[in-house]
């Protein structure tokens, strides 16, 4: 399994620690006899939007808790923003904004009071700019109107926004967001996506855990997939898609035999098709050193094959995900 992850990791990036916002080596957490996280080697490049995927209970949140110094690793090491955690916790965490396992607030305090409290807890924050920063963070997540409302009166979506506002109280170098769109309506989800894109555009590294694959596909540049406490794949989104096996080509043509001959000549394994209709469909599997789609079409046309439809198909992220983690995962598209 780990060998498989290794093939996907961009080794050049993994070796250059200076370019990594998060790096772990053999990070392991055991709770009594149960292994929650097993030998994790994370490599999150600076500036990346890293999608941390995995079924419920695969160890995502435990990993995040270890990265933030809430939970002690049983073995292995973790570096966040170039410093070892949890040893450098006081230096690292002021530069990290985080949403961990859902937002949490003191119900008897207002939204703004809750944010002021978390800000005051950071001994490096400056008190004189606190109120301004709280107001700006609330504004940014669209909660200004509810600033004076007690947190127990907040809806789930509002709490989620308030949690995001807490992560934005200061300029951050790294945002760790655990299920950031949980509980948000479609509009809120779009806003959060736009927010994450704007952070990434500012150069902030975003580490976002999710099980919403559509969200990850839209947002992320890099992906890591957890299954049963292990990292089963890691790399850029494109690398992960590609690792899912070879692409398939589908040609719709009345000249099926000629098409088969041409495709076979390009090293494509053509499936023996049935002439069900006059517009026959030829399907084949591309080799590893695949030709560009346009080159295949050019070769077909050069042999006077009448191409009426053409597609190169790859496994979707969802298919890859199920392959990597097994069935029984709550996929929400």
């Amino acid at each position: 399994m780990s060998g498989r992850a290794g093939t996907v990791v961009d080794d050049a990036v993994a070796d250059d620690a200076a370019d990594l916002a998060i790096r772990t080596r053999g990070l392991t957490k055991r709770f009594r006899s149960q292994v929650a996280v097993d030998g994790l080697d994370l490599a999150v490049p600076r500036g990346a939007v890293y999608g941390f995927l995995g079924p419920n209970g695969s160890g995502k949140t435990t990993t995040i808790r270890m990265l933030l110094g809430l939970v002690r690793a049983t073995a292995g090491e973790a570096e966040v923003l170039g410093s070892p955690m949890p040893r450098a916790i006081d230096a690292v965490l002021p530069r990290v904004g985080a949403l961990v396992e859902g937002p949490a607030f003191s119900p008897y305090l207002t939204g703004a009071q809750n944010l002021r409290r978390f800000d005051a807890a950071d001994r490096h924050s400056i008190g004189s700019t606190r109120d301004t920063r709280v107001a700006e963070a609330l504004e940014r997540v669209g909660l200004s109107h509810a600033a004076a409302k007690k947190a127990h009166a907040y809806s789930l979506g509002m709490k989620q926004r308030l949690g995001l506002a807490n992560a934005l109280l200061m300029p951050r170098d790294l945002l760790v967001l655990d299920e950031p769109t949980n509980g948000l309506d479609p509009q809120g989800t779009r806003e959060v996506r736009a927010l994450i894109r704007s952070f990434a555009a500012d150069g902030t590294t975003v580490f976002v855990s999710s099980h919403l694959l559509a969200e990850v596909e839209q947002l992320c540049t890099h992906v890591g997939v957890m299954s049963a406490g292990r990292l089963v794949a890691q790399g850029t989104l494109e690398e992960l898609r590609r690792s899912g096996g070879r692409a398939r080509v589908r040609v719709r043509t009345p000249d099926a035999p000629a098409a088969r001959r041409v495709l076979a000549g390009l090293g494509i394994e053509v499936e023996s098709g049935s002439a069900a209709s006059d517009l026959e469909v030829v399907v084949g599997t591309l080799p590893d050193d695949e030709e560009a789609p346009e080159a295949i079409v050019a070769a077909l046309v050069a042999e006077r094959v009448r191409v009426r439809g053409f597609a190169v198909e790859r496994a979707s992220l969802e298919q890859r995900f199920v392959e990597l983690t097994g069935e029984g995962f709550d996929v929400v598209a």
Binding site: R65, L68, G69, L70, I89, D90, L93, P94, V96, A98, V100, E101, G102, P103, A104, F105, S106, P107, N114, R117, F118, D119, A121, D122, R123, N166
Partner: peptide, 18 residues
């Protein structure tokens, strides 16, 4: 029990200081 402990600690408040 409110879950605010994790947010105070990642602020970071510092465990002894808290």
């Amino acid at each position: 029990s409110h879950g605010t402990l994790r947010y105070l600690l990642i602020a970071p408040a510092g465990r002894i200081r808290l």
